[in-house]
Design a protein around this nucleic acid. Structure first.
Length: 549
RNA sequence: CGGGGUGUAGCUCAGCCUGGUAGAGCAUUAGCUUUGGGAGCUAAGGGUCGCGAGUUCGAAUCCCGCCGCCCCGACCA
């Protein structure tokens, strides 16, 4: 029995190199005649269960998504990571344009005086601002330093977000109610001097999209705020296969200067929440600070109501922690830069030519099909490397379908392939085989099925890990306080009286002691409420509480 | 910014306690063998031991300072 297992491993890894770099610490004990131990191999050297943060770092590195740059807190995004971002960008851009927005580009550098206008906004960002003060370098004893004679009259800040410089433009562009609504978007990089950075999740510089709009009144601006939130929910779930819960942030978690902030929250595989997108109704705060007024139909000067909303490369971190497994990333087919990768089992012999021809024509055939509303992205990996190494590279990157075509496949007109989201059967790698024509016909469906399966799996995990049976703060404390940090803890959906000010601060402190935060008040609320878990008073709202990134 | 850990070859790490002139595996290069799957054998190349100052005849190793990275905390649109 166990000997049979060794045989299986032998079949799939006949030349397995048992390097430390590739072996997990766990070992399978197998009783072969010699009582040997054989490692259970997976493509990453850390598993999620052993060390989730380490595992996350390993996926970013091993899936070749990005690496650290010489600049502190900033990253070099590599083609597989950038390709994912470009797919996401394309989808979002299309939806943003389809909902009546136009793209603009505003400058990276913002006059420092601009940031001083909205008091709360200033305070929220002041501590993490990068400032440009000089326009020239000069050598002092061979060391380049900013030239003291080249100091800027007014320092510039590197945008941490563009509310202020866009608000300035709004104040000039908006004269009449006929100019409203003004709905714009920009794709940009922004910089926030973060204390502690983490690849994709919180980097000093990141890529994002920021929407900024101005409206005649609150109702119109609120409709816009909710529209953006719905775009984010839909893109997360339908495109990234990442289930989220959309809701309103509590007062203490609002964007600096916002009247109301909404978010989508996604559950990572360690049970923590990730704020994956935000949408803000800014009221007239920025309009007041920056004099954004229009002449209304009655001829009076009226303040515009503005919104802003954004999602960033952080979403890629969310995808990793939603869909990754111990073999690397499982890239949802919608965003996989390459959906079907064909690895020819080249042997450095004359028949390689025919094998390559077979692979190239298969690739062309696959590329002529469509899946998930777009042409299938197929690719033949002709890199001069060992086929087995190429296979594992694509497994770690999470190419949805990995075809391994040997001479016998070519001769027999068939395709052997791996399905990335169902890579293993037990401890073994599961190889499928289909006749070529059948595979070409099936492949788009396999991709679509994988997209649905990834979402279903993540959705089931999230839904199954939200407790709604915690009725008192003591219940919450007992659940999250036990087995400190060791065990998987999901979220809790609890009811509260929505305190404000100092009372809310006290709630925050009590949660903080358990390392918990309020994520949001989901849009879908029950019809009636019981008691507030914090005060015992009549509850008015249901909120999600969780540990968070 | 506070606490903890860590930094040695492209990668993963050993050596440090008890100072004596740099190691392993993988990767790379070359040759031979192998060929339905993360190959085997042989040989070769590759390191300012994070940076700086100090103790010492001699420092990867001991002392001091600084920096990067990771984790926890604080902070976080």
């Amino acid at each position: 029995m166990a000997g049979g297992r060794l045989g299986d491993l032998g079949r799939y890894f006949p030349h397995a190199r048992l390097s430390r770099a590739r072996c997990p610490p766990r070992r399978l004990t197998l009783s072969s005649p010699e009582e040997r131990t054989f490692p259970l191999m997976h493509a990453l050297k850390v598993t999620r269960a052993e060390d989730f943060p380490e595992w996350y770092q390993a996926v970013v590195r091993e899936a070749d998504l990005a690496e650290l740059s010489p600049t502190r807190g900033c990253m070099i995004i590599k083609p597989w990571g950038m390709g994912i971002w470009e797919r996401l960008q394309g989808e979002l851009d299309a939806r943003i344009k389809a909902s009546g927005h136009e793209n603009y580009y505003f400058p990276l550098l913002i006059p420092m005086s601009f940031i001083a206008k909205e008091a709360e906004h200033v305070e929220g960002f002041a501590k993490e601002m990068a400032v440009v003060t000089h326009h020239r370098l000069k050598a002092f004893d061979g060391v380049m330093k900013p030239d003291p004679e080249a100091e800027l009259a007014e320092p510039l800040i590197i945008r941490p977000t563009s509310e202020t410089i866009i608000g300035d433009a709004f104040s000039r562009w908006i004269k009449s109610y006929r100019d409203l609504p003004l709905k714009l978007n920009q794709w940009a990089n922004v910089m926030r001097w973060e204390m502690r950075t983490r690849m994709f999740l919180r980097t000093a510089e990141f890529l994002w999209q920021e929407g900024h709009t101005a409206h005649v009144d609150e109702a119109d601006a609120m409709a816009e705020t909710m529209l953006a939130l719905e775009i984010y929910r839909s893109v997360s779930e339908d495109f990234l296969a990442m289930p989220v819960i959309a809701g309103e942030k509590p007062e203490n978690e609002r964007f600096p200067g916002a009247e109301r902030t909404y978010s989508i929250e996604a559950m990572m595989q360690d049970g923590k929440a990730l704020q994956a997108g935000t949408s803000h109704y800014l009221g007239t705060h920025f309009a007041e600070a920056q004099n954004i007024r229009y002449q209304d139909k009655e001829g009076g000067q009226t303040l515009a109501h503005t919104t802003s909303w954004g999602v960033s490369t952080r979403l890629i971190g969310g995808v990793i922690m939603t869909h990754g497994d111990d073999d690397g990333l499982r890239t949802p087919p919608t965003i996989a830069p390459r959906q079907i990768v064909i690895v020819p089992m080249l042997r450095g012999k004359p028949e390689d030519t025919q094998l390559l021809e077979y692979c190239v024509s298969l690739c062309a055939e696959l590329s002529a099909t469509s899946a998930l509303g777009a042409p299938v992205r197929a690719f033949v990996d002709m890199k001069d490397a060992r086929p087995a190494d190429k296979r594992w590279d694509w497994v770690r990157r999470g190419a949805p379908l990995i075809c391994e075509i040997g001479p016998r496949d070519a001769a027999g007109g068939q395709v052997s392939y791996l399905i990335r989201n169902a890579l293993r059967e037990g401890d073994k790698i599961k190889t499928h085989t289909l006749a070529r024509a059948e595979f070409v016909r099936e492949a788009p469906m396999l991709l679509e099925q994988m997209q649905r399966a990834l979402f279903r799996e993540a959705k089931a995990r999230m839904d199954g890990a939200i407790r709604d049976d915690l009725k008192t703060f003591e219940d919450v404390a007992a659940y999250y306080g036990a087995d400190e940090g060791a065990e998987f803890k999901g979220w809790a959906r609890v009811q509260w009286a929505k305190p404000t000010g100092a009372a809310l601060e006290e709630v925050g402190d009590r949660l903080k002691a358990l390392k918990l935060t309020i994520r949001n008040a989901p849009l879908a609320q029950p019809a009636s409420f019981g008691k507030c878990i914090f005060t015992g008073a009549q509850a008015v709202e249901e909120i999600l509480i969780a540990r968070a990134y």
